[in-house]
Amino acid sequence: MKKSNSVAASKVTLSELMLPSHSNFSGKIHGGYLLQLMDQIAFASASKYSGSYCVTASVDTVDFLNPVEIGSLVTLKASVNYVGNSSMIVGIRVDAENIQTGTKKHCNSSYFTMVAKNEKGENVTVPKLELSTFEEVRRFYDCVRRINHKKKYKMLEEIFDHQSESALEKLNHFNVILKLK
């Protein structure tokens, strides 16, 4: 196994024409189909980087910023932005292009955490990440910030008592009716 690898070694681009069979009931491309493409490119990027089979451990926020039209050429770009011991965070950007007008729009960005595995299904160590531009450094620190935020959120979630009097009182500020039995 290589001791280190560059971000460039993980870069993958995937383009696909959006067909009517990919659409939802409103005539736009189904978000689930886009998620499938995003999972595929995350796998390709992480596997290419690590030289190992990789599985999806989690998906961070997927914000659908703009709908994708039937007939658009969708381009996904992915690269490894962060590495841990056996995990990698793959950043993905999805753009759609109207192939008749050339107009492009950013549709979503997301971060997939992928874990490298061996043939027995055990976690394996991934190469260190070589950062060669300030943009790569920024993306790495963005991932560190996201990881720390998730840890803080999980800690708060563990200590929150949803049965406490104050928690139940706060429900008055939401669109719910409390009918506990």
Rank of each mutant, 00 (worst) to 15 (best):
K48A: 06
V74A: 04
S164F: 08
L17S: 08
K3W: 04
V12D: 00
S58P: 11
T13E: 15
A42H: 08
A57L: 11
K2R: 14
S6N: 12
S52G: 05
F43C: 04
R145I: 14
I147L: 12
V62G: 01
E69G: 01
E97N: 05
P67V: 02
T13V: 15
G102T: 08
N98M: 05
I41S: 01
V137D: 13
K170S: 14
T13G: 10
S58E: 03
K11D: 03
T75S: 12
A57F: 04
L14N: 04
A42L: 04
S79L: 11
L35H: 03
N118H: 10
T56E: 07
K120T: 06
S166L: 14
F134L: 14
I29G: 02
L168D: 06
L17T: 05
V176E: 09
L14E: 04
T56Q: 09
N81Q: 08
K150N: 13
L168H: 12
R93P: 04
G91P: 08
S6W: 07
D95N: 13
S86V: 06
S6M: 11
L76V: 08
Y111G: 01
K128F: 04
H22T: 00
L180S: 15
G32V: 01
E136S: 05
K151G: 00
S23G: 10
H149S: 13
C54E: 06
H149Y: 13
Y49I: 08
Y33S: 00
A78W: 04
S15G: 07
T133C: 09
T101S: 15
T133Y: 05
H173V: 00
L14K: 11
V74D: 01
M114G: 06
S132F: 00
N24F: 02
G51H: 02
N108M: 10
E158S: 15
K28H: 07
T75D: 10
L129Y: 05
G32M: 07
H106L: 09
T56S: 14
N175T: 06
E169F: 03
G121E: 07
E130Y: 02
L73C: 07
V126F: 02
S15R: 05
M114V: 03
N5T: 07
K3F: 08
T113K: 07
L171V: 00
N175S: 14
V55L: 15
E136G: 03
I99A: 15
Y49M: 10
V176I: 11
K154S: 14
S47E: 10
L37H: 08
K105Q: 10
S47K: 12
G32N: 04
L73D: 02
F25A: 14
L129H: 09
I89V: 14
N123C: 11
N66Y: 10
A42R: 01
Y49T: 07
